[in-house]
Design a protein around this nucleic acid. Structure first.
Lengths: 383, 383
DNA sequence: ATGAGAAATAAAAACAGGTTGCATTAGTAA
DNA sequence: TTACTAATGCAACCTGTTTTTATTTCTCAT
């Protein structure tokens, strides 16, 4: 915590931020309620609210009668002014979601894309999906506060994709630079696993948990880490890339599923894993064996993460999370003997929305950092 | 950063902390200098200093003539009032160091202990070493602000040793409870690798680096992690215990050195590694081969840590750090191919003081947290 | 020695922001 | 209509910081 001294105007800014924070993400609050939550006196809160109202950070709602006594004025965070855009660039689809500053998703859009699509085709699809989502939300580009894009691969600090095997022609792409020209606001780029981990901490299985390892297993296997409730990126954004160690089994894990000997010819590649789990659920021996092998390989990498970090919780997400009932038992059985003290294990319930919601969350965090920083908070919002 | 609103008294406390922090760890400063560093006005700094002086947080030094103009009053942090004690419980020795709140070590003591010593013998040695160090520093137990003890093994949050193979009868010991009765102040217990990592970040190779993996290799091989400049303990204090994964080579790493076929009979176990490195330095083939094998096994575990966390820097410490000239090249050669992007690699120069100094640092951090917390800082020091 | 200049100290007045306390207002319930 | 409840608005007061001005104490040059 950086503390720098200051005069009473600094105190005023602290109290402005305190008030704004009390009203953030909550329903409408009366002055009395804000007084109670902030610990400030009533005249002060009144004055602060007046200022925030005048500068557009708050809006006033009509008083609600029905209670005893004089009806209270109601205030709420002015969430309609600014929006964020989150994008998930996947192998088979592009997802985009527009959310207001309260974190409420006001529009989302998913467009299919070929797994073979090259750089320019995929980038065009990203732009098209974003445009459609923004149009659907009736949000103009001037209203966008921040954009965050999630992609497979190692993402460097400056928004370049440094190492990506999943998407064709994607390696080395300056994604922040490519998309930065399309928007008048900051464009963040982040690894998809990290974003999914962030979502789990926000609205998923890892709420309130400090240290979390999120394992995304689907088309490829990867991991994202939450340390102290925040995404841990590492020096070059490569944290969680434990799959790159050939001694452990992540590089071959999915091949046990895709190589299932009795796979029907009409099963699409992205549906292969789910098919094998479905077969295993019926008790089919070869499928059960495939799941067993898969769990074994997955467990090795997870164990390495658990021993390195000792997280409170491991969350399994991605495509396989729909088959948690079949996967969890063998995974637990293979994982526990490798750990000193087995961590809690959970399966994500966010299905395929985890990454795009994480992008929204990271964009919101970026806005919040500006909003809640006592020293940089502007007297007026960007409008 | 938790922000809660407040009145002008809160502002006062913020400025008190700001002033104290400006004087902390620095040489004596004049009021004008403090004014410059804090951004506060002179009368304010004067008033704050007066209060801190009266409550014992600061002391005034005689003015230094020789400069133009009226000599300035000089103030410095009052480091003589409170002290911390750091202890390192090793296999062959117990180290204790007494430091003032500036972090200056005023006395230290090392006592030998048998590697076979059981629980009660070792605990008695710990107590005796601490008493001697305190006596040598002429510090009474009432002057101790915090004690921190470092030990091998997994240390739980409440100061119990949960998993320890290095020290006899040590597993399951409630170390915080045992030693808590001997002191009138908080007694912290921490894993030795974590403490050594902390020291590297403080005064060693990792100064100013956010994310560091510290690998301690000596009698046993272990790791401590610094994330965001702070020790990462994990849920149960087991972070960094990557050696527990049998797939990686840490469990057998040192055996390549201790099992050196040409080992003379008169070499003590704790000197075996150094002897092999010395032989390798002369070019003796069997020793070079042993070092090669050792580097190979060490690299596997380091690679797992690097891939999991992507640290900026890996520091090698413990007994082998004295032989960095021989170890570094083969280690680099085995490690680099396993990493996506090889991290910086450094050898500790702190020799056998790393753990005890880390204990001092953690104790100081514990004091600082209390000292610098605007909301809990007392008007008077503990005296 | 002695005066000029430099730099720190000291005291007073002005300003900003928050709190307490009291009167006022707008509803609900009998 | 009256009593009660709870929010509102205003004024006096308190705390803390800054600005301004005067004073002290030292060094350097004459």
């Amino acid at each position: 915590m950086t503390i720098s001294g200051g005069d009473t105007s600094r105190l005023r800014r602290i109290n402005l931020v305190t008030t704004l924070r009390a009203l953030r993400g909550q329903g409408p609050l009366s002055l009395t309620e804000v007084t109670r939550r902030t610990g400030l006196s009533r005249p002060t809160v009144e004055s602060l609210t007046e200022e925030l109202l005048g500068s557009g950070w708050l809006k006033e709602l009509p008083p609600q009668p029905g209670h005893m006594g004089r009806p209270a004025r109601l205030f709420s965070f002015h969430a309609t002014g600014d929006y964020v855009l989150g994008v998930d660039i996947g192998s088979y689809s592009i997802r985009a979601a527009v959310a207001d500053l309260d974190g409420t998703v006001v529009a989302s859009r998913t467009e299919r894309v070929s797994a073979d699509a090259g750089r320019s085709v995929r980038l065009a699809a990203v732009r098209a999906t974003a445009v459609k989502a923004l149009a659907s939300a009736e949000v103009g580009s001037a209203q966008l506060a921040t954009v965050c894009v999630g992609t497979t691969g190692v993402v460097s600090h400056d928004g370049r994709v440094k190492r990506c095997v999943g998407l064709p022609e994607w390696d080395g792409l300056d994604l922040a630079g490519e998309l930065g020209a399309d928007f008048d606001c900051p464009v963040l780029v982040e690894n998809d696993c990290n974003l999914a981990a962030l979502t789990e901490g926000w609205i998923g299985e890892a709420q309130g948990v400090d240290d979390v390892a999120f394992v995304l297993s689907g088309v490829r296997t990867g991991a994202g880490l939450l340390i102290g409730g925040r995404v841990h990126r590492g020096r070059g954004g490569a944290a969680g890339e434990i799959g790159a160690l050939p001694l452990l089994g992540w590089h071959r894990a999915t091949s046990h599923l895709t190589g299932y000997p009795k796979m029907p010819a009409d099963i699409l590649p992205q549906e292969a894993a789910e098919y094998v789990f479905a077969q295993a659920r019926t008790g089919e021996p070869a499928a059960r064996w495939a799941v067993e092998q898969y769990a074994h390989d997955l467990a090795e990498g997870i164990a390495a993460l658990v021993l390195a970090l000792d997280p409170e919780l491991v969350v399994i997400g991605g495509g396989v999370s729909r088959s948690g009932d079949v996967l969890l038992e063998p995974l637990r059985r293979h994982l526990d003997p490798l750990c000193l003290e087995p961590p809690a294990l959970a399966v994500s319930t966010l299905s395929d929305q985890a990454v795009v919601l994480g992008a929204v969350r990271l964009a919101l965090d970026h806005v919040d950092a500006r909003l809640y920083d006592v020293d940089t908070m502007l007297p007026e919002p960007s409008s």
